Amino acid sequence: MKRASFIRHSGKFAILPVDNIDTDQIIPSREMKTVGRTGLADGLFAGWRYLSADDRTPNPDFVLNDPERSGTTILVSGENFGCGSSREHAVWALFEYGIRVIIARSFGDIFFNNCLRNGILPIRLNSEDIDKIMALDRDTTLAIDLPEQTLRCDNSAMPFDISAYGKRLLAEGLDPIELTLRSFEQIRHFHREDETLRPWIYSSAH
């Protein structure tokens, strides 16, 4: 799953005004039929998107099935989004579907960090700002500026916090392993020097 760098994003939003949406609701375990990061979008919110899990009859009342929400890239939700199990498939399914930003009052910690590692920006906003977004006309475009850490909509600017580490992962389109490999030569140099200084540490490797 190729991740482009995330610097700025403007897009259509959809509202899921539900607290405590857990990872099993984001992608039920029955939908995780692959160990890879692709092939999961069809199972996203499967318990809500479909009237029947067997024949995939769309639920017309679910927001992502609304034709006017086609092309949604931003989700807006309530408290504790992504709680529950640590399954990374939940983030992979969201990304493959096209979601690039999730705005909520709070997140499950593991889910929040999985988003940063997989190209999705999770934004925590206070209740007042969330309510402002939920009251917007649905045709309003939300604009996110990662360097400025600002969300803009309807002439309002809403700042958000993000760690320097998470910001770098998103801005450079990297996961933690790829970020570590950026320092491969420095790491190898350190090991060579350390082996000279403390050869007994490495003796079992030969």
Results as ranks from 00 to 15, higher is better:
6 F>V: 01
6 F>K: 01
6 F>T: 02
9 H>L: 14
11 G>E: 02
11 G>L: 01
12 K>F: 06
12 K>G: 05
12 K>R: 15
12 K>V: 03
13 F>A: 10
13 F>I: 02
13 F>W: 02
14 A>G: 01
15 I>N: 03
17 P>A: 12
18 V>T: 14
18 V>Q: 13
19 D>P: 08
19 D>A: 08
20 N>I: 00
21 I>A: 05
21 I>M: 02
21 I>W: 04
22 D>G: 06
23 T>G: 05
23 T>N: 10
25 Q>T: 05
25 Q>K: 13
26 I>H: 07
26 I>L: 10
29 S>H: 13
30 R>F: 14
31 E>Q: 14
31 E>G: 05
31 E>I: 00
32 M>P: 00
33 K>E: 07
37 R>V: 01
39 G>A: 09
40 L>T: 01
40 L>I: 03
40 L>Y: 02
42 D>L: 09
42 D>F: 02
42 D>E: 15
43 G>D: 04
43 G>E: 12
43 G>A: 11
44 L>W: 08
44 L>F: 12
44 L>R: 03
47 G>Y: 05
50 Y>R: 13
50 Y>W: 11
50 Y>H: 11
51 L>R: 15
52 S>H: 13
52 S>K: 09
52 S>R: 10
53 A>Y: 08
53 A>L: 15
54 D>R: 13
55 D>A: 09
57 T>N: 05
60 P>M: 11
61 D>Y: 13
61 D>G: 10
61 D>F: 12
62 F>N: 06
63 V>H: 09
64 L>P: 07
65 N>Q: 11
66 D>E: 12
66 D>P: 04
67 P>T: 07
68 E>T: 15
69 R>N: 15
70 S>W: 09
70 S>P: 00
70 S>Q: 15
